[in-house]
Every structure is written in C-alpha cells, then in structure tokens.
Amino acid sequence: MRLNLKIWRQAGPTAPGRLEDYTADSVSPDMSFLEMLDVVNEGLIVKGKDAIAFDSDCREGICGTCSLVIDGVAHGPDRGTTVCQLHMRRFKDGETVTIEPWRAKAFPVVKDLVVDRSAFDRIIAAGGFVSINAGGAQDANNILIPKDVCDAAMDSAACIGCGACVAACKNASAHLFMSAKISHLSLLPQGQQERYTRVTAMIDQADSEGFGSCSNEGECEAVCPKEIPISNIARMTREYVMARLSK
C-alpha cells in the first residue's frame, strides 16, 4: 500500500504549525497505524530530517498515551479503538490521510502531534482519588456490592485518560473524562467519604484549566476507545447537585 499523508508539524509550543505532505511507501495492511508512522520516521531519519513527534507507549490499547486525530476523528475511524490498535487494512491504497494532534486550549501542543495532557493529572490531583485508609483486603463477602453497580464502576474505571473525549468535543469539554472518574469512585464504598468534595473540586479544576462545557452531542462517547457512555456525565451532574445541596 502507498498512502499520502498530511501531517501537522509544529516545532514547539509557540511556533506556528502547518500540515506537511509525506508519502508512506510499502505499507503492509497488517501494520498498526503507529508502525506505519515509525516507518515514515525511519525514512526521515535516514535523510537527516527531523522525525515526526507523536506519543505512544504500550501499543496494546490500554495506556491512553497515543493521541492522533485521523481524518477529523480522534483515534481514527474504528469504534472503541486507540490509534495503536488501528490497522492499515482500514485504509485504501493511494488514500490521503490527514493526521493532527488533539486540539484544546487545555492541551497545548508540545511538538508536532504531541500535546501536554497534564491538565488531566491536575484534575485527578484535585480529588480523583481515595485518601482514606480503606484497610487491608477485605473478605470477599464482607462488603456486598450489587453486580450492576460493580459493573458500572468497573466500566467507568476502564477510562485510560487519553483525552479523545476532549479532542472530539466541539467545546473541548473534559466532562466525559471527569464523569468516568467520578462514577468509578462514587459507586464504590471506598469512594463514599470524599464523594461530594471530589466532584466539586474536580469540576472547579477542569473549569479553571480552560476546558469547555458539554452540549450533550455524545461525540466523546463515539470516539472513546473504552466506549464510556455519556450517562456517566448525567451521573456527575446528579453528584454535583447533591454535593452543592449538602453544603
């Protein structure tokens, strides 16, 4: 396969960026998207040119590091998939593919396709954790949690914090990310003590980071590699109301 690539190149956070044309030759349909970019980079390095900077780590869809907008869709065209799990058989020979970084005020570009997502870390640091001493491992039947509640908490905990929700949202909102973390912890017994301080602190932090609001379009859910539903955002709203009423 041969692909025409239009890739966002930006030397640094304050430098102007633009789309540059590249050609990916001898692409195997079995390659992952990131492996295809690795091959393009090897060619650039051999020619003494600056390699295209992009983020990746586990390359098995669980770490949330890879972050590319491919042809206008965060993580590319496959449902419930990170870029590293997207394969070239999804594309046609001779196709032109546009690759851009996540774009949000709160996710400034570091270089090329790499963005700084530490705003997410600060949201977590504001309250997305359990600080009480929950003791040692309990007996399996000591704390009974209904199966559906357990499943909902686990599904929310599947969020890998990649930021695709922000990238896809027309308002660059972090509501899906926050709501996944808040749902995960507010559904389980260990998260109860800090339940209401958590939701207010995280929302205040996200607002101060410059993320937008939510318009209920569900673009975030559609691109989420872990398919976290926006019903979590509604739960976050309920938690927020309870938190503000209880103060």
């Binding site: 546009t98 851009e100 005020k105 027309k170 660059a172 609001s213 209920n216 859910e221």
Partner: peptide, 28 residues
C-alpha cells in the same frame, strides 16, 4: 462564547465520529 475559547486553534479537518453520536445539524 466561553466554549469558543476552549479550542483556540481549529482542526484542519474535523468530522463527526458517527457510531453512537447524537450530533446532528440541529445540535450543531
């Protein structure tokens, strides 16, 4: 107006993700 400031640099190419989205002409 506040949401407009959340993405100062626009995408060169952007389209709806499809799948489960509720995005429509009306919502946009």
């Amino acid at each position: 107006l506040s949401n407009q400031t959340a993405r100062p640099v626009a995408y060169q190419k952007k389209k709806s993700a499809g799948h489960t989205t509720r995005k429509t002409f009306a919502s946009s």
